[in-house]
Amino acid sequence: MYAFDYRRPATLNEADLALKAAPGAKLLAGGQTLIPTLKQRLANPGVVIDLSAIPDLKAITRKGDTLHIGAMATHAEVAGSKDVAAAIPGLATLASHIGDPQVRHKGTIGGSLANNDPAADYPAAALALGATMHTNKRTLSAQDFFQGLFATALDDNEILTEISFPIPKRFAYAKFPNPASLYAMVGVAVAETAGGPRVAVTGAGTDGVFRVPALETALTGGFKADALKSVTIPTTGINGDIHGSPEYRAHLIGVMARRAVAAA
């Protein structure tokens, strides 16, 4: 690691001030991506601002038809939350399969979403559920938030504080994990929402998480796995690498989508 200065603000306001005072600073959430990145000297932020001492950012609450999850809630906390299990059980299941138990004790939903790793699980859920991202400055729809590989609409001095999920009729996420890394080769999140069916895919897009209109249309007539059988996913924009060709991943999208719908 390159040397850096460290701040651990106790409030969001202090964090905001620390960010403004240190252009180029990095926010540390659970650190399960940032610390490995620092260790490899792939980042040299000068200042690291640790958000772990701000208690307000960890709350998980249900208000009416919306589930609110603080950005610093860990994967283990989301997986174990009674409110999440009652409102969107598929989201708790998703959280319970991220990484390994130790990573789930540290990694956070906000860290995952702000990092927008193209193989991370949460972005697909946020996009399929039509989540709203709350920052210390504004709110953003998931659609507007994700902007390609490791890219989001967050400004340099903006802090993701909370994610709110409209509670859907049904939701599930199915992933085909790479057996070594456990990252999604393909992960598909499906939701039956008030605005109709939504399908979002992680792990497969050359430009990160994306929705699949053809699958959404197919589900409009009935939220059943069989409804997806006739849909072929084109390989345009689908990622190919040593783990799988675009054709393989495109095929997996259909398979994972059907599994997710069956599980929802």
Binding site: Y6, R8, L28, G31, Q32, I35, P36, K39, V48, D50, S52, A76, D100, P101, Q102, V103, H105, K106
Partner: peptide, 26 residues
């Protein structure tokens, strides 16, 4: 040293974490 192997697991406030992927100051 890449948070894969778990040889560094300790408990912080009662929970198992990988101490190679945690800052001491945190």
């Amino acid at each position: 040293d890449t948070s894969q192997c778990g040889a560094c697991v300790v408990h912080v406030d009662g929970k198992a974490i990988k101490s190679c992927t945690t800052l001491a100051l945190s």
